[in-house]
Design a binder for these strands. Structure first.
Length: 635
DNA sequence: CGAAAAGTTGGTTCT
DNA sequence: CAGAACCAACTTTTC
């Protein structure tokens, strides 16, 4: 056998610093090394991601490619426009590959994809080498040390982490890279299944991807938004390892900020600058190593002496929570992101529940939830649309939701507020609906952290003190009395008196006239200029309803894997307990119900299957990141 | 084992 | 206006 001819497959580790897998590739002393990125059809078509996250990905790829070229002018990031599942067998042969090296991925879809690729490599006689560097500790090792159970609390994670051992120290970036070999692509390209293209609505024109493997110019260049058919991004946040390292450098240069950071004391209303580090999207794309952050911060903390904050509030504490969610995901597996078949999450009969694969007749797989949901209550559906598009009539909620949609990022505590409001603290809508919206819009969207946090905030798992309920009025006021965040993101209210900025429906006519704003309608239909919607619900009333309903649900104590949850007999338990607020029960409302059907244009209707549910229920199609493997149902 | 304390980040009222 | 007491009461961890 000749000298190693190595493909380094970049995926969610778009960096050169502290990459154990890249180090492993270089340790082979390769004759040639191709740094490549493949277009995953799941990412392009099946995962709903707004243009802002795409922009961030392209930023990371462009920066990485430049950094590679700096180390070796003959090399760069070779972007191949075909799915890895079909591309690799052809590539192994055409390029004479001996080794394939990559960083292990974490979520269910990615693990299945990697398993398939490893099998294809084995058949082609290509050796596969993987390393792990996505979290502080290897999540599988954490699970093993936690008694083969998912980590459902930070204490469990900390104890398991101690048993696993010291967090690996960062590996320096390589000083040189081998030449790439030849890159013939004289084989038949294969287009992936584009149906459904969950991003179709966002595209300006049909995407031109997959027409040629090496891209429009045949040079394996990084793709553009134009090529993907997307309009320009709206986010001010930009990606790439160079920026990430600069930002990290600035953070640790401020020793006091770094060493005394206390998350609960950072303001969700701060935006220029924001109160937290905004390193999460860099961690998501792997343009910054979490271990590098950990050790750089720890160094500052060690040198700071008295007064430094400690986990879980401190900066490193935030990283521990991230690891906790990854190890929870690793321990629970495929059902982690859903209620159904998940023994670790409570069953609560929220409105707008997910359809199962059975419900929709689109097959079955390790993921039991189809990505679509049932409209059990027109009022709830309308509340959901108003929440999603930032027209609830509660200015702080709306400011946060609009900031999220425009910029792809909001402060963690802001996420708490809007999540609590949608679920247990207002609308009583299923956390999976909110999880899907975040999945679509967050530039730092991480399946494990997103689902975990939604479970936390809805008191479904990880957290249970449901009587602690965020107020859409009081919570924002505490941080931002003058309403600066509202004035920026809800410009209709920018001139309203401070006294009414959190509750504009209470403003007297003179105050509204002075601010040139009318309080009217539901925000979904009227022109937005000069008009701000009425509050969509009575918060205090709904808070009481939700809290009581949560109490009943906790007492009944069903979990996602209970037979009663699957066969629908849960309903009798709740009815016997005298509970009225639950899936299938219409929400009493003065005027909200009548217009609810109008909101339906936002989503495609999907044909219903035989799930034993009422035929009249409307069905909505949502994102399908968790929708891993669809095979036609046998029957 | 059982009781007590703790748990990343609530709200309101009173001092 | 900062801080404590209270609200009503969950699960996990510690002692």
């Amino acid at each position: 056998m000749g000298k190693p001819r190595v493909i380094y497959w970049f995926r969610t580790d778009l960096r050169l610093h502290d990459s154990p897998a890249l180090q492993a590739a270089l340790d082979l002393s390769p004759d040639v090394l191709w740094p490549i990125f493949t277009w995953d059809p799941h990412y392009v078509y099946k995962a709903k991601g707004g243009v802002n996250r795409w922009q961030y990905l392209l930023d990371c790829q462009n920066d990485l490619s430049k950094s590679i070229t700096k180390l070796n002018p003959k090399s760069k990031l070779f972007v191949l426009r075909e799915g890895p599942q079909t591309l690799f067998p052809k590539l192994f042969k055409a390029w004479g590959v001996t080794h394939l090296v990559f960083e292990r991925d974490t979520d269910t879809y990615a693990k299945q994809r990697d398993q398939l690729v490893a099998e294809l490599a084995r058949k082609a006689g290509v050796e596969v080498i993987t390393r792990y560097g996505r979290t502080l500790w290897d999540s599988d090792e954490i699970v093993a040390k936690n008694g083969n159970k998912p980590t459902m609390s930070i204490v469990q994670l900390q104890h398991a982490g101690q048993k696993v051992g010291q967090i690996p120290k960062p590996i320096p970036a390589p000083k040189s890279l081998p030449d790439p070999g030849g890159t013939p692509v004289d084989f038949e390209p294969e287009e992936p299944d584009r149906d459904p293209d969950l991003n179709a609505d966002f595209r300006k024109h049909k995407d031109k991807t997959y027409s040629t493997i090496a891209g429009p110019k045949g040079d394996f260049a990084v793709e553009t938004l134009e090529e993907l058919g997307f309009p320009p991004a709206t986010t001010p946040h930009r990606g790439g390892e160079t920026i990430a390292l600069t930002v990290l450098g600035e953070i640790i240069a401020n020793k006091k900020y770094t060493a005394t950071f206390q998350k609960p004391k950072t303001s969700p209303a701060a935006f220029e600058p924001q109160a937290t580090t905004l390193l999460s999207p860099h961690m998501h794309f792997g343009s910054l190593s979490v271990r590098l952050i950990y050790w750089k911060v720890q160094e500052v903390v060690d040198g700071y002496g008295k007064g430094a904050s400690t986990p879980p509030e401190s900066l490193t504490g935030q990283l521990l929570f991230r690891d906790m969610y990854f190890a929870a995901q690793a321990g629970i597996g495929a059902p982690f992101g859903q209620t159904l078949n998940n023994a670790y999450v409570r069953f609560i009969p929220w409105h707008l529940p997910s359809n199962t694969m059975e419900d929709t007749d689109i097959g079955e797989g390790p993921i039991a939830v189809s990505g679509s949901y049932r409209v059990d209550s027109p009022v709830a559906e309308k509340w959901f649309q108003r929440w999603k598009y930032g027209v609830t009539g509660f200015p702080f909620v709306d400011a946060l939701m609009r900031q999220l949609r425009q910029e792809g990022w909001i402060h963690h505590l802001g996420r708490h507020l809007v999540a609590c409001f949608l679920t247990r603290g207002g609308c009583y809508i299923h956390w999976e609906r909110g999880c899907e919206v975040f999945e679509e819009w967050l530039i730092d969207h991480e399946p494990a952290c997103n689902a975990g946090n939604w479970q936390w905030l809805s008191c479904t798992a990880f957290f249970s003190q449901f009587f602690r309920c965020y107020s859409p009025i009081a919570f924002g006021k505490k941080w931002d009395k003058s309403g600066a965040l509202i004035r920026k993101y809800v410009p209709e209210l920018k001139d309203l008196d401070e006294k009414y900025i959190y509750e504009p429906w209470k403003a007297p006519p003179q105050a509204l006239a002075a601010a040139k704003v009318k309080i009217h309608g539901d925000g979904l239909h009227e022109p937005r200029e000069g008009v701000y919607p009425e509050p969509m619900l009575d918060f205090n009333e709904r808070r009481t309803v939700c809290l009581n309903a949560m109490k009943v649900a906790y007492k009944i104590g069903l979990h996602g894997n209970d037979e009663k949850v699957k066969d629908g007999s849960w309903k009798k338990l709740f009815e016997d307990a005298g509970e009225k607020e639950m899936e299938g029960a219409e929400i009493p409302s003065d005027d909200n119900g009548s217009e609810a059907d109008d909101a339906e244009h936002e989503n495609h209707k999907r044909k219903r299957g035989t799930g034993g549910r009422r035929k009249s229920d409307a069905v909505k199609q949502g994102p399908m990141d968790r929708h891993v493997k669809k095979t036609k149902a046998a029957a």
